[in-house]
């Protein structure tokens, strides 16, 4: 079987149809993972028992494959009668998986803030929540923006996992074309090239954003 370039070009629009889902899934998963990651990190900085539990959850998330976590949710939830759209399950799975990594980003971001900041806030009579919102978070944002940018790229690169749940994102629509035409070489190749281009655009966007914030100190 030879590589048919004409066929490859012909199917580009059909594979591109999945780009909308790819972008939605990455964007929502990124927001979900950031929120959940921040929650784990706050849990880790609270009560000692919570700290141990959160630490174990984070390490366990980081020690199991994203594919298996997504499969777990996809097959186990319906068994207990929870029927959700595949895309929702996939987004939840990716958010959960990356929250483990993003909590480490928040940890590093908060660790670099001098302890005097929260001590000063406490001596001014601010409560724990107010300290986090008004003193820690604004300073932390500057530290976490760059690593969060890289994680937005990693999340984009993990969205093809949803194709395995039957979500028609870019790999999914490529596989649909493939099974219709019974030619796998061209569709998978085309989706690879499209992902490469999309990723380069996102990387350039993240770099631009970091420069705007004046965060970029050394080249990529």
């Amino acid at each position: 079987m030879n590589f048919d370039i004409e066929f490859a070009l012909e199917i580009v629009p059909r594979v591109l149809q999945g780009i909308e889902n790819t972008i939605i899934v990455s964007a929502v998963s990124f927001v979900g993972a950031t929120a959940l990651g921040f929650f784990w990190e706050m849990l880790r900085r609270s009560h000692w028992l919570m700290r141990a539990i959160a630490q174990f959850i984070i390490d366990a998330i980081r020690s199991t494959p994203a594919l298996v976590q997504v499969y777990f949710l996809f097959f186990v939830l319906p068994y207990y009668g929870v029927k959700l759209p595949a895309m929702f399950v996939g987004i939840f799975g990716l958010s959960f998986y990356f929250s483990g990594y993003i909590s480490e980003v928040f940890k590093a971001g908060i660790d670099t803030i001098p302890a005097g900041q929260s001590q000063a806030a406490q001596s001014l009579g601010l409560g724990r929540v107010d300290t986090v919102i008004f003193v820690i978070a604004p300073q932390m944002l500057r530290n976490v923006a760059a690593p969060l940018g890289s994680y937005s790229v990693y999340i984009l690169l993990s969205t093809p996992l949803l194709a395995l749940l039957g979500v028609p994102e870019m790999l999914g629509s490529a596989l649909d074309v493939a099974s219709e035409a019974y030619r796998f070489a061209e569709p998978t190749f085309v989706s690879g090239v499209l992902f490469l281009i999309l990723n380069l655009i996102v990387v350039a966007g993240v770099a631009l954003f970091e420069r705007r914030l004046g965060l970029r100190t050394q080249p990529h």
């Binding site: 690169l157 969205t159 790999l171 690879g192 992902f195 490469l196 990723n199 990387v203």
Partner: peptide
């Protein structure tokens, strides 16, 4: 580095 492993 820039393509999804699954797609590669």
């Amino acid at each position: 580095r820039s393509s999804p492993i699954l797609v590669l």
